[in-house]
């Protein structure tokens, strides 16, 4: 697979504390990559390093297959970004704010009107940003990240402060950019629900360490179905299953089976019944993606 972003043992230390520790980020070309983690996990710090805003303490970063340290300018020409809360010059209008950036990219002036249209700010083109609402500033930030038609778009919590329709709009925009323009998009969030509908890949970071990185489908599969059994005598059921070489988790009031083929479940039940165990209930427990994510990050925190 071709990776647009590839980091190797990326590490950032502040004083004694590791904000990011040995992270190997892999973002495949043309995909939407959801970068997840609770507050203070190190998402923004990682993103700052990807943009060359901070020097990594250790490790290296490749973007478009080129070394970031050596070819920063060339790389950044093809990257659009929005880090944390958007930056803007309050005393300038929306148009002028974008113009300060456009001059540097050297893209045609027409592009300003285009991106303002994309984020639906055309009506306030000539209004000073000082008077913008939080969501409007956020949209302006997204607009500026699109100015150069980037090949890689990095958005750090882009839906911060947006109203529900705004969130849906941005979500659709991201999908469209990915599909129509073939952009590779990194989008960070602390809410899985925010990206599970659009992301192809997810990386979960917690306390500076990457604890999961794969496609969202793999994550879905992990989070799926467990079968729990209710029976009359757990102790005996336990012994029977062990002696038959079947794997299961026991507690005083339930037996949980990890994911199995239907055939396996049937076998287990048959063995129990043949040994005179009364099987009261067989339930399929469906864990949501969200609770899997919560559990992943909670485990890491030692809760």
């Amino acid at each position: 697979m071709e990776y647009i972003v590839e980091t190797n043992k990326l590490t950032k230390r502040f004083g004694k504390e590791y904000a990011v520790e040995a992270v190997d980020l892999r973002i495949p070309k043309g995909e939407i990559y959801g970068f997840l983690g609770p507050n203070g996990a190190g998402k923004t710090t990682t993103i700052r390093m990807l943009l060359g805003l901070m020097e990594p303490t250790l490790g290296n970063i490749k973007v478009f297959g080129k070394d970031l340290k050596r070819e920063r300018i060339g790389i950044l020409k093809k990257v659009g970004s929005l880090v944390e809360n958007p930056s803007y010059y309050p005393h300038l209008t929306a148009y002028e704010n974008l113009e300060t950036i456009r001059k540097i990219y050297g893209v045609p002036k027409k592009r300003i009107a285009d991106v303002l249209e994309i984020v639906r700010l055309s009506e306030v083109t000539n209004k000073k940003v000082k008077g913008f609402s939080l969501g409007m500033k956020q949209r302006l930030g997204i607009a500026s990240s699109l100015l150069n038609k980037p090949e890689l778009l990095i958005l750090d919590e882009p839906t911060n402060g947006l109203d529900p329709s705004g969130i849906i709009e941005i979500r659709n925009l991201i999908k469209r950019l990915s599909k129509e323009e073939g952009m590779t998009i990194l989008i960070s969030s602390h809410l899985l629900s925010e990206i599970d509908q659009i992301a192809d890949h997810v990386g979960v970071i917690s306390k500076g360490k990457m604890i999961f990185q794969d496609t969202i489908d793999v994550m879905r599969r992990q989070s799926q179905k467990k079968i729990s059994l209710k029976v009359n005598d757990y102790e005996r059921a336990n012994r029977i299953l062990i002696s038959n070489g079947m794997k299961a988790d026991f507690s005083i009031d339930s037996i949980t089976l990890p994911e199995h083929h239907d055939e396996d479940i049937a076998n287990i039940v048959r063995v129990l019944v043949e040994n005179n165990i009364s099987v009261y209930r067989i339930e399929e427990e469906k864990r949501s993606l969200e609770s899997t994510f919560l559990q992943m990050t909670a485990e890491e925190r030692g809760l």
Binding site: L51, L53, R72, G74, I101, I104
Partner: peptide, 8 residues
Amino acid sequence: KQVIALPV
């Protein structure tokens, strides 16, 4: 952060 993330 916006200025330095530009290709400059």
